[in-house]
Design a protein around this nucleic acid. Structure first.
Length: 870
DNA sequence: GCGAGCAGCGTACCT
DNA sequence: ACAGGTACGCTGCTCGCG
């Protein structure tokens, strides 16, 4: 194929190179391109002993749906690009797979990569594909290269002549972490005026220094650089000496790097970070900014962690450095007690506290270093698997992860990559959602001897088993002889679709890794690395269905996606029916899981039944035993509407879905959906609910559960608890002026912003607030309505009432929002609110199953006179 | 003018 | 800017009552 002779593609005016041809190998990190002497060169960043670059020539191109006969005419078409008139470099007819069918299309070459999108508009009459693929990625896709793979190649000087082979690689990197401290008399430091007072760095958990410009005794790790300027310059010398391959920081793109740059500019000294002595560069990628440091792999752990948390590779409740460190390593932060960052400038000014400040600075660098060791392998693995470059992986959406691999595999099989949908198409798809999974309503109650099964990788296995793909759908080749889904769609049995093919490869790779994993020692570095890899593959495999149904997907297919979920519902419901036929009581099901009551059945019966079910499933699909649970709790959902205080009959209680608590045969508790797993409930409510559930599951003691609640209620009344326990966390996902109704978290954030202290809260802020007795005294009524007049489509009532603003008259009632204050401002909490709206409802739901009433909790009730508590 | 009822907003969760 | 299914608190409207 034409791709295999790239050097002939470029009209060559190359002089005879003098350098000898050498065979070498190195690990590919990423690619980009440069234009030199009017020639486009792909630049491959490699790692051997050190990082280095290789260059290769490659021509940019895209595809056009036009016949070869049109080439002469099309070659004359031109278009303006950056003020200059451009034409195609050349064209050729090639055979490609388009929407599952082989046919001929035109491959149109451009002179330079940036011309491609514009050039495409010169041929508006014809459909075009692949005109907006970043050139570096284009190169890797076409050459079948993956980041972090080892290339063995021939080179001539820095020029790559030929790739001889590729292999897996797992390089290690010399890593340096850095962190700065700044003088902050006003709270937030102002880079223009407030100096940087310390730069700390770490190259391992034991090595590293704190650069500063005060002499600090008894701390050998501190280096006094005399002045701020001297400190910044010393940092540059350290960069040269250590010469790290990976440079990492925490939120350093947003804070440390720009701050240092401003200080360096101010002091008229260069900031020396890159291997060539350059500083950093910031590239806008969509909404977010990505920094790069020449010749090094720059890693900002903050966005990286957010990304890994988003895709589910790690779980972090709050993204502060200390919290992420504590949760991911399981170590307590080395920094003894939480230091108040607002105090930093005071510590600097106080001769007795500048030492501890240096300790703090060093500690930060060290924990950041340790965190880097932990999460960098995940990022690299994600890059390896998805074939996105490590820096592209951070901040990629899960659709991009899936899409990247699909595109690579499409190219590899000679298929053209479909275009992204237009905004209109995407909107239309969104308007028409696809029916999803089945969830059975459980009967509330406390149960004994349950067994839980789930389908291993339900959607991926359905897709593979039935060859579900947009282009195997209703194929003309095997009309009537495909797999027929419950929706009636059929899928080709003859040619494997792209998505099932890629998915099968991913699943196979994962199965192999899991085999290898069994032979390794848990806890070892190798085990951790291997585990991360298989976890990555699992995350990826589970994303394919979502991508098929994603409105902006290149491979969207409503029919295909509907078939996946329809089959899913069919399999899980059939499994439920089989369980009931076999004499189990079917308690609950959600998507791919199945909760059964064993009754008198033994574990062997259960396994026997599972074998029987599996025998009937298509190849690749499997029902797995998740665990046995001696005891479990399902609760009724809160009844909305007619709650007639004492009409038991009226309030027909139904079980709540997606909420349960189980204890397995080893005493481990598994809780899903309950308030205690939600951060938008107060710590005290969550803690109390957990204790109640434990009392019931572990001890089976209703009395203990009730006693716990009474005790907590009494303590709340007594007002002896720390205020933090009453904090509720809620994220503001929209820009503040876009909210239609006032909520407690919004009210707290607005009040805070009005004070004008500290950082303003806005989109994305997580509000930690407390419901106080009275609110903060800001009597101002807050309105969520930001000027937009219209809205309120209340049941299409034309309603003659122009005096809408009259309704917001000072109500005598104070709402919850009125009383919401950020934790930092709250002076008290409202005991009634916390008892009646947080504690009682959360525990009552559970205790009702045991016949406990609200009164029993609040005032002791008849069964046990515990009035003495109050 | 007031309270109850209820729809809709909004968030976080489950698989 | 991966999917859909779900629970549930709060706000703010409507409506019935007086």
């Amino acid at each position: 194929m034409e791709e295999n002779k790239p050097l002939q593609q470029t009209p060559s005016k190359a002089p005879k190179p003098k350098a000898p041809v050498k065979k070498r190998s190195g690990v590919l990190l990423e690619t980009d391109y440069i234009i030199k002497n009017n020639e486009t060169r792909v630049r491959l960043q490699m790692k051997g002993k050190r990082l280095y670059y290789l260059y290769d020539r490659y021509e940019p191109y895209f595809y056009l749906d036009a016949p070869a006969s049109k080439i002469p005419e099309l070659m004359k078409s031109s278009v303006l690009h950056r003020g200059l008139r451009i034409t195609a470099a050349h064209m050729e007819e090639v055979e490609r797979e388009v929407e599952g069918k082989k046919r001929k299309v035109l491959k149109v070459y451009a002179h330079h990569p940036p011309e491609v999108p514009d050039l495409r508009t010169a041929f508006k009459d014809y459909h075009a594909w692949e005109y907006n693929i970043i050139f570096g990625r284009r190169y890797m896709m076409d050459k079948g290269l993956a980041p972090l793979s080892r290339l063995t190649y021939e080179r001539q000087g820095k020029r790559l002549l030929k790739i001889l082979k590729t292999a897996e690689a797992n390089p290690t990197f010399r890593t340096m972490t850095f962190d700065i401290e700044t003088y902050n008399p006003l709270g937030a430091p102002r880079a223009a005026q407030d100096p940087c007072i310390m730069i700390s760095y770490a190259t391992s958990m034991h090595d590293g220094k704190v650069l500063t410009y005060k002499s600090i005794k008894d701390r050998p790790f501190v280096k006094d650089c005399i002045s701020e300027k001297g400190m910044i310059e010393e940092f540059g010398r350290v960069m040269d000496k250590v010469d790290p391959e990976v440079l990492s920081g925490y939120n350093s793109t947003q804070f440390d790097l720009p701050y240092l740059q401003t200080r360096a500019d101010h002091l008229r000294t260069p900031l020396h970070l890159g291997r060539d002595g350059s500083t950093f560069k910031v590239r806008k990628r969509g909404i977010r900014e990505v920094a790069r440091v020449q010749g090094r792999i720059y890693v900002d752990l903050f966005p990286l962690l957010r990304f890994l948390s988003f895709i589910g590779a790690v779980k972090v409740s709050r993204f502060t450095l200390e919290n992420a460190y504590a949760e991911l390593t399981g170590h307590k932060s080395v920094l003894k007690e939480q230091m108040d960052r607002l105090d930093i400038y005071k510590m600097w000014d106080d001769p007795h506290r500048v030492g501890p400040l240096a300790d703090y600075a060093q500690g930060d660098a060290h924990i950041t270093w340790e965190l880097t060791q932990l999460v960098l392998p995940l990022e690299l693995e994600m890059a390896r698997v998805t074939r996105l470059s490590p820096s592209d992986v951070v901040g990629a959406t899960s659709s991009q992860l899936v899409e990247s691999l699909l595109m690579c595999e499409a190219v590899a099989r000679g298929a053209i990559v479909p275009n992204k949908p237009t905004d209109e198409e995407a909107k239309a798809r969104e308007m028409n959602p696809i029916e999803g999974a089945y969830v059975k309503t459980p009967s509330p109650g406390i149960y004994e001897n349950m067994v839980v099964f789930d389908f291993r990788g339900l959607y991926p296995s359905i897709i593979i088993a039935h060859n579900i793909d947009p282009f195997t759908l209703n194929c003309s080749d095997c009309k009537g002889d495909g797999y027929i889904s419950p929706t009636g769609a059929h899928f080709c049995k003859k040619h494997r679709g792209l998505i099932p093919d890629v998915l099968a490869k991913v699943m196979k790779a994962r199965a192999e890794l899991k085999d290898k994993l069994k032979k390794l020692e848990p806890g070892s570095d190798e085990y951790r690395a291997m585990f991360a890899r298989q976890q990555t593959l699992k995350i990826l495999a589970n994303s394919y269905y979502g991508y098929l149904a994603f409105s902006r997907s290149r491979y969207y297919s409503r029919s295909a996606a509907e078939s996946v979920t329809a089959w899913g519902r069919q399999f899980i419901m059939q499994t439920g029916e089989k369980a009931e036929k076999a004499g189990f009581k079917l308690l609950y099901q959600d998507t791919d899981s199945c909760f059964l009551l064993m009754g008198d059945k033994k574990k062997e019966d259960v396994l026997e039944w599972m074998k029987h079910v599996n025998a009937d499933l298509p190849h690749g699909m499997e029902l797995e035993l998740e665990a046995f649970y001696p005891r479990g709790v399902f609760v009724s959902k809160k009844v909305t509407g007619a709650v007639g205080t004492n009409s038991d009959s009226a309030a027909k209680t139904t079980g709540a879905k997606k909420k349960y608590a189980l204890i397995d045969d080893k005493g481990r508790i598994k809780i899903r959906g309950f308030e205690l797993v939600r951060r938008d409930w107060s710590v005290i409510a969550r803690e109390t609910q957990r204790r109640v559930l434990e009392a019931i599951l572990k001890d089976g003691s209703k009395e203990r559960a009730v006693a716990i609640v009474r005790e907590v209620v009494a303590e709340i009344r007594a007002g002896k608890m720390p205020l933090e326990k009453f904090a509720i966390e809620t994220q503001l996902v929209k820009p503040l002026d876009k909210y239609e109704v006032m909520s407690p978290e919004l009210a707290a954030a607005l009040k805070h912003n009005k004070r004008g202290k500290g950082e303003r809260m806005g989109q994305g802020s997580v509000v930690r607030y407390v419901i106080t007795r009275s609110g903060g005294g800001h009597g101002t009524e807050l309105s969520a309505h930001s000027g937009k007049e219209e809205k309120k489509k209340t049941g299409a009532k034309p309603a003659a009432k122009p005096t809408k603003s009259a309704s917001k008259s000072k109500s005598s009632k104070t709402s919850v929002s009125d009383k919401a204050e950020l934790l930092e401002y709250a002076k008290d909490y409202d005991p009634d609110y916390y008892i009646d709206h947080q504690i009682i409802p959360t525990v009552l739901k559970i205790l009702k199953e045991l016949g406990v009433e609200e009164e029993d909790l609040k005032r002791g009730g008849k069964q046990s006179g515990l009035e003495s508590f109050f």
